[in-house]
Design a protein around this nucleic acid. Sequence first.
DNA 1: CCGTATCCATTCCGATACTG
DNA 2: CAGTATCGGAATGGATACGG
Lengths: 149, 149
Amino acid sequence: MKRKSLQGAACPVARTLDLIGDWWSLLIIRDALDGIRRFSDFQKNLDIAKNMLSARLKALVEQGIMQTVPAADGGAYKEYVLTERGKALQTVIVALSQWGGEFMYEAGETGSVMVDAQNRQPIRKLELVAADGRVLAPEDVATRLAVEH
Amino acid sequence: MKRKSLQGAACPVARTLDLIGDWWSLLIIRDALDGIRRFSDFQKNLDIAKNMLSARLKALVEQGIMQTVPAADGGAYKEYVLTERGKALQTVIVALSQWGGEFMYEAGETGSVMVDAQNRQPIRKLELVAADGRVLAPEDVATRLAVEH
DNA sequence: CCGTATCCATTCCGATACTG
DNA sequence: CAGTATCGGAATGGATACGG
């Protein structure tokens, strides 16, 4: 039996997971955000099988999340970079990173953190903010079906 | 061949995806954040096979993301609710939802949005903010290995 | 160096049947 | 209603070999 497609779902979470909700895509995007561009660099860094990496990159390009460009150094091979759409996934990566940093490490264990590139200081924790600027707790956020008016 | 475990990775994104990076976990958590607590409600809402749901819930409980509690109505069966750790994943869900809302819908198509429970107004888009309060663009954020000092 | 193609074990996932 | 057990087809992912 085939896994259902979630593209018809009303929930944008479901549609998004349908694109990037697998084991590798978000890790590839994380590396791409870190400046990795070449096939072999992704492969070494992720320790992913080459056929898997090939398939994932192809899918990400088809979905408009990444695109191929000529090599920056004038080499013969193409490189993979994020589109604007792909870059916008950084919020998701940061959310995952902050949660993991908070809950997945023992005391004294070192992990990596997201920092302000200018001064290398960690960025603030993401916050849920209401339209009027109040910071919201998890319980204060609900889901509503969007309707035109 | 078995899939590698990412638990030893230095990157918190990898560790987190190792826990919840599969197709169903985040959807279950999204429903739980929406107030769904009972096995059959998850099952109907997600249209997931019962054995899959059973396995996922068990894993989420083992990982400390959900916990079982006696039924709120005094019924004989337990219910599944998020722990604090699980509720903290709301940022991830919101990030996915906002990205999906922006990039996965045609004009005029309706999806659901995250709103302030008090006044039903959509919440603000998540922002990457530096320690000193500046809003950062994707390019202004880097990854740094955290070190004790 | 950059990938593609093929093989195979493992895992995933849905359908169905069953217990309490 | 709340799960567990089992089965089989499909997809995943790693190793290896191969071609541009």
